[in-house]
């Protein structure tokens, strides 16, 4: 009796805390998503306090799905951003992990340099990229384009070749704060930050690769590409799946980067849209929140299954 009791007692605080953390706010979101609830409304002041008498059924969901401007754009954009980041980090991560997975001079330092971006706080990451690097006038982006223009201008005065260069247009630096391009800025900075994560995981996994099998393949005359394609890639299938799922969950809720880059101008994702709804229409924010939970769960279920499977061995 006592033998069973103590372990349970030890787990109780953690379980209770997490249970409260999950149930109370989520329960409130669920409740708010079914009632009319706005923070400011002079015409209908009764809507400004949450109450059962303002029951709206699935009205908020209907509003979010069919009438709210930006909802579908936000969903689409969330998926676009996550998709681009995933492709970028996995491809770069594979290439870099292969590159670093051999012993060479200074490997330790190279690893430290490569992993560093991952520990930069997201707010600093975004401020650094959007200002110091991507700013179209004062950032490196603007300076580089200006430099190229200067060189081209200089070349225009050359005899013979000059006529060729005078055909070149004056280059315009891309502004990444603008509506169409801010998503690319976010993709760039997050890819930079999370590629190290992919590298680290692929590298860990590469260390358990069967070396003998590889040597046998070399003796059989398999070239590097076919060794990578037929031995390494299958070996990495599982880590790739893990990287994809963990990143999906993290990046579906990107916020700070989007806020800092353009304040959601032309580049909203679902969490950002929920944040905007929250400034007044709580009903709609909650309904959109439930959609975000569903979207995250689709990924999470796969991940949890995979993680759970090899938990006890």
């Amino acid at each position: 009796m006592a033998k069973r009791k103590i372990p349970r007692l030890l787990q109780t605080p953690a379980v209770v805390l997490l249970l409260l953390w999950m149930l109370i706010p989520l329960g409130m979101t669920l409740y708010f998503s079914f009632i009319r609830y706005v923070l400011n409304n002079l015409r209908r002041p009764e809507w400004t306090t949450p109450s059962f008498s303002n029951w709206r059924g699935f009205g908020n969901y209907e509003y979010v799905l069919f009438h709210a401007k930006d909802f579908w754009f936000a969903v689409q954009n969330s998926l676009f951003i996550v998709g681009c980041i995933l492709v970028g980090t996995v491809l770069l991560g594979l290439a870099l992990a292969m590159l670093v997975n051999r012993s060479f001079r200074g490997r330790g330092i190279v690893r430290v340099l490569l992993i560093s971006p991952f520990f930069v706080m997201p707010a600093v990451n975004a401020v650094l990229w959007i200002n110091m690097i991507l700013d179209p006038v004062l950032g490196l982006n603007g300076l580089a384009v200006g430099g190229i223009n200067n060189i081209v201008n200089g070349l225009r005065d050359f005899p013979l070749l000059g006529s060729f260069f005078s055909l070149w247009p004056e280059f315009e630096p891309v502004s990444f704060r603008a509506t169409q391009t801010s998503a690319y800025a976010v993709i760039m900075m997050v890819t930079w930050q999370w590629t190290p994560f992919a590298v680290l995981i692929f590298m860990t996994s590469l260390q358990s690769e069967d070396e003998q099998q590889k040597e046998a393949a070399i003796l059989d005359g398999a070239n590097a590409w076919s060794r990578f394609r037929n031995l390494t890639l299958p070996h990495l299938a599982r880590p790739i799946a893990i990287v994809v799922m963990i990143q999906s969950i993290f990046h579906l809720s990107l916020y700070a980067e989007i806020e800092i880059t353009s304040r959601g101008n032309g580049n909203k994702n679902l969490p950002y849209l929920i944040g905007e709804f929250t400034s007044n229409n709580i009903g709609a924010a909650s309904a959109a929140g439930i959609f975000a939970v569903i979207l995250a769960n689709i990924v999470a279920i796969f991940l949890l299954r995979m993680v759970g499977k090899n938990l006890m061995d």
Binding site: L18, M28, T29, L252, S253, I274, A285, S286
Partner: peptide, 22 residues
Amino acid sequence: KDILVWMLSTKMLPAAAVLYPM
């Protein structure tokens, strides 16, 4: 095992969904 997996699932709750309640 179920408790561990459940704990992890709380981590996957999108924060924005519970912003106002919090």
